[in-house]
Design a protein around this nucleic acid. Sequence first.
DNA 1: ATACAAGTTCAAGTGAACTTGAGGTCAAGG
DNA 2: CCTTGACCTCAAGTTCACTTGAACTTGTAT
Lengths: 158, 158
Amino acid sequence: MAEQFIDISELAARSGLAASALRFYEAEGLIVSLRSAGNRRRFPRSILRKVAFIRAAQNVGLTLDAIKAALGGLPSGRTPTKADWESLSRQWAVLLDEKIAALHRLRNALGSCIGCGCLSLKRCALYNPGDAARAKGFGARYLLGDDPKQFMASEGEG
Amino acid sequence: MAEQFIDISELAARSGLAASALRFYEAEGLIVSLRSAGNRRRFPRSILRKVAFIRAAQNVGLTLDAIKAALGGLPSGRTPTKADWESLSRQWAVLLDEKIAALHRLRNALGSCIGCGCLSLKRCALYNPGDAARAKGFGARYLLGDDPKQFMASEGEG
DNA sequence: ATACAAGTTCAAGTGAACTTGAGGTCAAGG
DNA sequence: CCTTGACCTCAAGTTCACTTGAACTTGTAT
C-alpha cells in the first residue's frame, strides 16, 4: 500500500526535522539515500527508524560523531539490527540512568532548598552538597553530575 | 580566618570552571567583580554561591541569557536572597520534573526495546510510542519531550 | 509553453559558550 | 634589579549542529 520510498519532504514532515538537517545528516554520513532519475533523494521507509534512533541518541547526550561511530559498525545501507539495538540500548540505558540520577540529585537539592533559607549558605544543599567545603573545587559540580576530578585528586585536604 | 575576597584562580579552582569562563561570565554580566590596585579581579566569597547557581541553572537547561534574566532583578552586587531562590527554585523544579519525565519515557522505551525485537518495528516503543503512526511527524520527538506541534496540528489523519 | 514550487549543490553564516593568542602589566622570589 | 608567572584586555578562533543564500535543475499544474 504505502510507497516503498519517501522523499525528503515527507521524511522531514514525519521526523519533525528540517530538510536541511536531513541533508546535513547525510553529508555527515549518518544517513544514506538513493537518488531518483532527477537526482532527488529517495529514502527507504526504514530511514524513519534510523532518524528516530539518531534523535534518541542525541537526547541521551551523544554527539553526532558519537552516534555515527555507534552506527559505524553497520554496513552503510543497513539499519540497526536487533543485536545492534540491544547493545546500544544497554549503553544508553546506563547513560540515561546517570543523567536521571543527576537530575534527581539536583531536584532534591532544590526541594530542600525551597524552604531552607539559603542565606545561611553553610547548609544549602545546592550550594554545597556535603557540608562545608572539605576539598577545594567541590562545589555544585558533583551535584550536577560532572566529573568530580578535583575532589578525587585532593582527598584529605580540609 | 578566611580572606574576605578570592582571586580568579581560587574561584576557578573552587568552582571547577576555567578562569576564561569566569571572565566570560563577567563580560556577559552574569557576575561582577571588584578590582585590586593592580586591576586584578577580587571576588567576594558569595560569588561561589552565585556561580553554583549559574551552573545549576545551566544544567537545568537554561541559557546564559535566561540565567542572566533570572538574576536580572537583583541589584548588581547582590547575590540571590531567600525569596529569589524560592521563586527560581520552584521554576526550576518544574523544568527538572519535565526533564526527568522525558528521560524516564526514553528509559522505559529503551527498557522494553532491549528485549523487543526491534526489527518488527511496528511494536517498537522507541520508534513509535503510540502504535502505528497515526499522525504525520509523530515519531520519536514526542518521546523525547519535544513539542509535538505537528501532532497537535494534524489530528484525525490516519 | 510557461510558471513556479520544490528539489539540488556548495559555501558561508549563525548562536551558544567558551578558548586561544597577542601584547602588555603587575607581584613575588632570588 | 630581573625574571617568572599569574593576571589583564581585546580580538579572533573553535566546536556543534544546523540554517541560509546563491545559482541552478526538476517535476507538476495550467
